[in-house]
């Protein structure tokens, strides 16, 4: 069963001058965690805002639970949990009064589950929201998004502001939502996050969907950036191994972009006088440029 169906959804801002998304078509199946990956300004938040009926599409259509996102938005939102990247709540409210206020819009709040979420995030709900740190604001946002056990979670760069420990707890909680049958649609620009959580990913850039992939295919690519610090000149044949898509000379050595396993290249580098090697996740721009050719 399809939970989210998007068909040629297009949004232009400023009387057609600025593109938000163009001809976006994708489906999200029941129970899956779908990651929407793209750099800043790619159209991720536009898509989410369209799904939430915060903005109107220029053309195209979309449905959630088989209902029209505009005409049936209230019915849809009863079963949605939305978590923005940065939440803005009324300053005068405490954590508790926030839960009470936003809980007032929802039916059937599972109080036990709610208490469990608060406890897992170690959240002090007696304090005023304006006194919360960015991380605590994000924690209360997670609680507000999940407290009614929604059938669809829409998360817009959800871990911004969370420290690594709380990020790990958050990933755990999102995986657990599958137990009560939740489907998740979430946007991120962090590759690692998508690899950890998602069943499928959609790659978006400049408003256009480039590709949808299963997470296994995506993981196999293992797109990495290798910085080699050396004063020696390395033969091109050593660097030009299978899976190396970019070789660049830098002031401190070499910069490579690789896909797949990196064992071979590391072995071949062992023969040379290398000062340091740093393997990391490349920027999305880099990935799009070298892998998706965009």
């Amino acid at each position: 069963m399809k939970i989210v169906e998007i068909n040629k959804l297009t949004k232009y801002y400023n009387h057609g001058k600025i593109l938000g998304v163009k001809n976006l078509t994708l489906d999200v199946d029941a129970g899956e965690i779908f990651g929407f990956i793209g750099p800043n300004g790619a159209g991720k938040s536009t898509t989410i805002r369209l799904l939430l009926d915060l903005i109107m599409p220029t053309s195209g259509s979309a449905s959630i639970f088989g209902l029209n996102i505009h005409t049936d938005t209230i019915q849809i939102k009863k079963n949605i949990g939305y978590l923005p990247g940065e939440i803005f709540l009324p300053d005068v409210l405490t954590g508790d009064s926030c839960i009470k206020y936003y809980g007032g819009f929802k039916q059937d709040i599972d109080k036990k589950y709610l208490a469990d979420l608060i406890q897992r995030f170690d959240l002090d709900t007696k304090r005023k929201v304006k006194d919360y740190s960015k991380g605590n604001k994000q924690k209360i946002a997670v609680v507000l998004a999940l407290m009614h056990k929604p059938k669809l979670l829409i998360l817009d760069e959800p871990t911004s502001g969370l420290d690594p420990l709380n990020q790990a707890e958050f990933y755990k909680i999102i995986r657990e939502t599958k137990k009560f049958g939740a489907t998740t649609f979430f946007s991120t620009h962090i590759l690692e996050e998508a690899e950890k959580l998602c069943d499928r990913v959609g790659i978006i850039k400049e408003g256009e969907l480039l590709k949808i992939e299963n997470i296994d295919e995506f993981r196999e690519k293992n797109i990495r950036e290798i910085h080699i610090d050396t004063s020696s000149v390395l033969p091109l044949s050593t660097l030009k191994q299978e899976g190396v898509t970019k070789i660049e000379r830098t002031t401190t050595g070499y910069h490579l972009i690789t896909t797949g396993k990196n064992g071979k290249i590391l072995q071949s580098l062992a023969k040379f006088d290398i000062e340091d090697i740093k393997v990391s996740e490349p920027s999305l721009e880099e990935i799009f440029m070298h892998y998706y050719k965009k």
């Binding site: 209230i74 939102k77 803005f88 946002a141």
Partner: peptide, 14 residues
């Protein structure tokens, strides 16, 4: 302006 409206309108209310 305060951006509180986004989250408010994600609730089931017209």
């Amino acid at each position: 302006e305060k951006r509180t409206i986004d989250f408010d309108l994600s609730q089931p209310i017209s």
